[in-house]
Computed example of a mutant assay.
Amino acid sequence: MAQGKFVTYLRVSTKRQGDSGLGLEAQRAAVETYLNGGAWTVCGEFVEVESGKSDVNRPQLQRAIQACRIYGAKLLIAKFDRLSRDAHFLLGLEKAGIEFVATDNPHANRLTVGIMALVADEERRAISARTKAALAAAKARGVKLGGDRGAVLSAEAKAKGAQVRQAKANSRAADLLPVIAEIREAGAFTLQAVADALNARGIPTARGGMWSPVQVQRVEARAASARICVRSCWT
């Protein structure tokens, strides 16, 4: 039974199919059947007219993924092949923390992507085993191994960590800024009004909580300092 938040993504391969609606109706029907019952919320629907061979020129898919990040939602598709046939792309979704469900195989994300991840993990295990064997052989030859085990980070490592955190926060601000701009254009003039609108839309904060005026101000200030331009994720 479906639970939680979802963003639906529908794709047809030709413009003719997109104009006529052929294929889309069947996909919508499959999505509705999957969502029949349970406690769920659909945060948005994105429709693409593009070949599955290309993951680069698929702006609606990128906007759907952006919406998943904003709402903390799962990507819901009618058929597994509607998302992508590229294994590297699918693993990229998993790495980015985007969960997805295919109605024709609800466990595809765990079975298919999971199997590929297990293969990679097995390779890492093999590398680790070879490294340990080499270290054991070196130790047997009298080579002194190891050193100071204290986890003292260098200034460079700390700076890199700060850069990673800043990049992540900037990315989150870039996702949210178009939504905040849309809310303000609708008449929300105060920070409290914007926070209330974000909460009403079910958009969580970065830590999964409720919005406050201070948090809205921080996002807008970060966007301004990073010179992030407003670009609508819905059009």
Rank of each mutant, 00 (worst) to 15 (best):
Arg130Gly: 10
Val119Glu: 11
Ile77Ala: 06
Phe100Arg: 02
Leu111Trp: 05
Pro106Leu: 14
Ala129Thr: 10
Asn109Glu: 12
Val113Cys: 05
Val113Thr: 13
Leu83Trp: 04
Glu99Phe: 08
Ile98Ala: 02
Gly97Asp: 05
Ala67Trp: 00
Arg110Gln: 14
Arg110Val: 13
Ala67Ser: 12
Leu93Ala: 07
Arg124Gly: 09
Ile98Met: 09
Ala126Asp: 05
Lys79Leu: 09
Phe89Trp: 01
Ala126Leu: 08
Ala129Asp: 14
Arg124Gln: 11
Gly97Arg: 07
Leu90Arg: 11
Ile127Trp: 06
Arg82Ala: 00
Leu83His: 04
Ala117Asp: 00
Asn105Phe: 11
Arg125Leu: 13
Leu76Thr: 05
Arg85Asn: 12
Glu94Arg: 15
Leu90Ser: 04
Lys95Met: 09
Ile98Asp: 06
Asp104Glu: 03
Ile70Gln: 13
Arg85Gly: 13
Leu111Pro: 00
Glu94Ser: 08
Lys79Val: 04
Glu122Pro: 01
Phe80Arg: 13
Arg63Leu: 04
Val101Phe: 01
Gly72Thr: 08
Lys74Phe: 02
Pro106Asn: 10
Gln62Thr: 01
Arg110Leu: 10
Leu118Arg: 01
Ala117Lys: 10
Phe100Trp: 15
Arg69Cys: 01
Ala126Gly: 07
Gly72Met: 05
Asn105Trp: 14
Gly97Ser: 13
Ala129Gln: 14
Leu75Ile: 00
Asp81Leu: 03
Ala73Ile: 05
Pro106Lys: 11
Leu90Phe: 01
Ile70Met: 13
Leu83Val: 08
Lys74His: 05
Val101Tyr: 04
Ala108Val: 02
Tyr71His: 15
Phe100Thr: 11
Ile77Gly: 08
Phe80Tyr: 13
Gly97Trp: 12
Ile115His: 07
Leu83Tyr: 03
Leu91Trp: 02
Lys95Asn: 12
Val119Met: 08
Leu118Ala: 05
Arg63Asn: 11
Ile70Trp: 01
Ala129Pro: 10
Glu123Gln: 14
Val101Ile: 15
His107Asn: 12
Tyr71Phe: 15
Met116Glu: 07
Ile115Tyr: 10
Ala64Gln: 07
Val119Gly: 00
Leu83Gln: 07
Asn109Phe: 15
Ile127Asp: 13
Ala120Phe: 03
Ile65Arg: 12
Ile127Lys: 15
Leu75Pro: 02
Glu123Trp: 09
Asp121Val: 00
Asp86Thr: 09
Cys68His: 11
Leu83Asp: 03
Pro106Ser: 08
Phe80Met: 14
Arg110Phe: 03
Tyr71Glu: 00
Met116Tyr: 13
Ala117Met: 12
Arg85Ile: 09
Ala120Lys: 14
Leu93Trp: 11
Ala87Val: 14
Ala126Met: 08
Arg130Val: 14
Ser128His: 07
Gly92Gln: 04
Phe80Val: 14
Ile127Val: 15
Glu122Cys: 10
Arg125Lys: 14
Leu76Ile: 10
Ala73Met: 05
Ile127Ala: 13
Arg130Ala: 15
Ile77Asp: 02
